[in-house]
Design a protein around this nucleic acid. Structure first.
Length: 803
RNA sequence: GCGGAUAUGGCGGAAUUGGCAGACGCGCCGGACUUAGAAUCCGGUUCUUACGAGUGGGGGUUCAAAUCCCCCUAUCCGCACCA
């Protein structure tokens, strides 16, 4: 037991000292660094070692930045609205505010075990009326600026949760929360016009230091495509149908048209003869769950009896309806070119519609198509455009349509407006009043927040109404405009609302005049580093960007992107699966802290694998870092009172160590930082054995480098080596490139590319000298061979090519 | 179906971006200390039939390839009738 360091005593001691003297003094004139964790939902089951991964990483960066001379904002808070607490309330009758408060207390205790330097005076909670006052305030600004609007629409409806879901919450037609199959229901909804920002949300991705993967996911989600809208007149009527296509070059090959079943013109153009069939089909399509509609690749559809006129060649093409055409993308209607589109091809084959090829592969002859030809090529069967290259024809035909008033070039986005209302209890009330005379009126800002009232029952109604609608004394109010009796909006906001702007609030949490003061925003924002899971790649991060851009437009903030750098930590798995209570594979940090201490766990969280990659948790690996910390402890303990003169070799190792640790830390390759610590400490120990000790500067350097990673043991060792102030008052060590150089270097000698021997040479030895030495070294192998070529890579390798 | 990523010892993973593959750690083997165990320390640890072979498989470029190019295979992730 002689050398084991007493982590329990040390960690307790330093936590108490930091409590009184925080290592991150505020109100300085230092440059700022804002390092933010994605704030958690306060779950009842607490944190596991997977949660720690991101939190440790951001804490290490924050502490590193302190030593680099920055003032740090590194806050934490709670995204506490949401379904789990509400579902728990439905089951037990416990008010969500009570159960979330309990969860918060537990998670906060666990966060203290990490010894992260969160500034708890800046804690925020999205369910605090002083916070959601500003969530509501932002909504009102959006409402006043025409970004919030009401719409009756068929929505994803989870029959189990009895809640409307956003498209994003109903991935693959299954409820994200409970896994039930999602159906459709028509309801009045509040929408946010995020599509107005589509172009900026797409373009500004270029400014961001984010993982390419995340940027790609966002740009795919926004889904910009260039094309044309083309008007097809309906034969024998004064109506026309607008279609959207990205392939105007194929217009001569359009042999039919398809409308979405929900398209409003369908009833007007359907002829009596086909009326029954069409109505039946529409009914079937609306009853189809979104799962079926997505997975049924087999095409269905019915003919309406009407024909459209191709505006270019006057051809009469039958108009069909089919659910493979989406009502809410483009114009909800398409022209179909079976020869050059796979889906149209399938449809044409199934319903025996004509296929006309209008593009052929260069140099080939036209023969019957076995599948749609979707490549570029040479125009055929296209009147004046024949023999033109199809990509040129795309442009030429689009221009022709535009010039002749039968179409126009357009851009389309996959991004849809954001369904912003929820028929649930545990969310921010939407601060609007419905007045019979004045219509929808925003609650005056001085009346905010509209507080969430207590209810008897949390159960949402199966009619789609929020539980709030049952509280007459809350619902009934007066119109802020005319004073007449009016009713409050009873829908609440989605959980995303509070998390779309929380990063702004941290810099000025107690402000009751503004969401944050201009000065505080100017000092701290935007966020320099944002750390969190990849699961928020699209939704949260897209919504937050949207909010920021809106607040920029109305002059609240002076930047239009909230997060300059994003880092997604990988998941920690156990037995190959994500840790979850239901899987029973949760590893709690509490036991490991008890057994090895916080410092060891912090270091192992980083060592377990590359931080951006998923890693399997292995308890036994933590022994390695625990042994390492004991080794450092022993090194410091044995040398603290010795007066060893620094040697050239120690200086070389020390400088190299600073260089390597710093570079790896900047690149966030934390696992290699830890291995670097081990590697260089081993080297120092080896030299120490040789010369009987280690100099003071080397010890100080090791301790200082370690302190962001293992703060408790670092502070203790710092004190042990005779320093009276905190190690966090130190500057990050600097290296001297000159001193990193070794006197001699080992050169590998290859013969015909194969390693044979190695030699030590002076670092400044010249090319000829080294090659001569190398040839001498492998002279036996060179007998009877003619040297063809000699390659020398300074400091690394000599390759002799010989036959 | 489309798009993206990954593949290195028994395991987690390194490799200065084309220059000695396997750093660092886990595990394992051997030794020291110990009455014994735990802990600690020291040594070893890609395979090998000892010639060599070797970074998922096959080809190529190069003096030199885990790294670059082409073709496969497997796994994971994202999107999924977006006209």
């Amino acid at each position: 037991m002689s050398t084991k360091y007493d982590f329990r005593k040390i960690e307790k001691k330093w936590r108490e000292i930091w409590e009184k003297n925080p290592v991150n003094p505020t109100g300085t004139n230092k440059p700022k660094y804002y390092c933010l964790d994605m704030f958690p939902y306060p779950s009842g089951s607490g944190l596991h070692v997977g949660h720690w991964r991101g939190y440790v990483l951001s804490d290490v960066i924050s502490r590193y930045k302190i030593l680099q001379g920055f003032e740090i904002l590194h806050p934490m808070g709670w995204d506490a609205f949401g379904l789990p607490a509400e579902n728990y309330a439905i089951k037990t009758g416990t008010h969500p505010s009570v159960s979330t408060a309990e969860s918060i207390e537990n998670v906060k205790r666990q966060l203290h075990e990490i010894s992260a330097i969160y500034d708890w005076s800046k804690e925020i909670n999205t369910t605090d009326p002083n916070y959601y006052k500003w969530t509501q305030w932002i909504f009102i600004q959006m409402f006043k600026n025409g970004l919030a609007y009401e719409k009756e629409m068929p929505l994803n409806w989870c029959p189990n949760c009895k809640a409307v879901l956003a498209n994003e919450e109903a991935t693959n037609g299954v409820c994200d929360r409970c896994g039930s199959t999602v159906t459709k229901k028509n309801l009045r909804q509040w929408m946010l016009r995020i599509t107005k920002y589509a172009e900026r949300l797409l373009n500004d991705l270029g400014k961001l230091n984010w993982p390419e993967k995340v940027k790609k996911m966002q740009s795919d989600w926004i889904g910009k495509s260039y094309g044309a809208e083309i008007d097809f007149e309906v034969d024998g009527s004064d109506k026309s149908i607008k279609v959207f296509t990205t392939r105007p070059d194929t217009l001569y090959g359009a042999t039919f048209m398809v409308l979405a079943p929900e398209h409003e013109i369908v009833s007007e153009i359907t002829t009596d003869q086909y009326k029954d069939k069409v109505e039946k089909y529409i009914l079937e399509a609306s009853a189809k769950s979104s799962v079926d509609r997505m997975t049924d690749k087999e095409k269905t559809g019915v003919f309406t009896g009407s024909y459209g006129i191709n505006p270019l060649n006057g051809a009469k093409v039958p108009i069909w309806i089919s659910d493979y055409v989406l009502a809410d993308y483009g114009t909800g209607a398409i022209m179909c070119v079976p020869a050059h589109d796979e889906r149209d091809f399938d449809f044409a084959k199934k319903f025996d519609l004509p296929i006309i090829q209008v593009i052929k592969k260069e140099g080939s002859e036209i023969s019957e198509l076995k599948e749609a030809y979707v490549e570029e090529g040479v125009m055929v069967n296209s009147g004046p455009f024949d023999d033109m290259n199809s990509s040129l024809a795309k442009e030429t035909i689009a221009n022709y349509l535009q010039e002749n008033g039968i179409g126009k070039k357009t851009v389309n986005y996959k991004l849809r407006d954001w369904v912003f209302s929820r028929q649930r209890y545990w969310g921010e009330p939407i601060p609007l009043v419905h007045c019979e005379k004045c219509g929808v009126v925003a609650v005056p800002e001085d009346q905010l927040p509209i507080e969430l009232p207590k209810v008897e029952s949390y159960q949402p109604t199966s009619t789609g109404q929020s539980p709030l609608s049952a509280i007459d004394e809350w619902v009934n109010t007066t119109c802020p405009k005319c004073g007449a009796p009016a009713k409050r909006e009873t829908n609440t906001m989605p959980q995303w609302a509070g998390s779309s702007w929380y990063y702004l609030r941290y810099c000025d949490v107690n402000n009751d005049k503004e969401l944050a003061s201009k000065e505080a925003l100017k000092k701290w924002l935007p966020v320099d580093l944002y750390v969190g899971g990849i699961e928020h790649a699209v939704l949260h991060l897209l919504y937050a960007r949207f909010y920021t851009k809106f607040l920029y437009d109305i002059g609240v903030v002076d930047f239009d992107e909230p997060f300059l750098r994003l880092f997604n930590q990988g998941m920690i798995t156990k037995d190959g699966a994500k840790m979850s209570k239901s899987e029973g594979n949760v590893v709690s940090p509490d036991d490991l802290v008890e057994k090895y201490g916080c410092d060891s766990l912090r270091m192992y969280e980083l060592f377990v694998g590359p931080p951006e990659v998923d890693s399997e948790w292995d308890d036994s690996g933590i022994d390695g870092v625990f042994r390492y910390l004991n080794k450092v402890w022993k090194l410091v303990d044995e040398n603290k009172d010795k007066n060893i003169e620094p040697t050239k070799e120690l200086e070389q190792i020390r400088n190299k160590m600073i260089y390597e640790i710093t570079n790896r830390l900047e690149a966030l390759t934390m696992n290699t930082v830890v291995s670097g610590f081990m590697e260089y400490t081993n080297k120092i120990i080896a030299v120490s054995k040789k010369i009987g000790g280690v100099d003071k500067l080397t010890l100080d350097t090791v301790i200082t480098l370690l302190c962001p990673f293992t703060p408790h043991i670092a502070e203790e060792m710092w004190q042990l080596t005779g320093h009276s102030d905190s190690v966090f008052k130190q500057s990050w060590p600097e290296y001297d490139k000159e001193k990193m150089k070794e006197d001699t270097v080992e050169i590998a000698i290859q013969l015909n590319g194969k390693f044979r021997e190695s030699i030590k040479v002076d670092a400044d030895a010249g090319k000829d000298e080294v090659i001569a030495m190398a040839k001498e070294k492998i002279s036996a192998r060179l007998q009877n061979l003619n040297i063809v070529k000699e390659i020398y890579v300074p400091g690394r390798i000599v390759n002799i090519v010989a036959k």
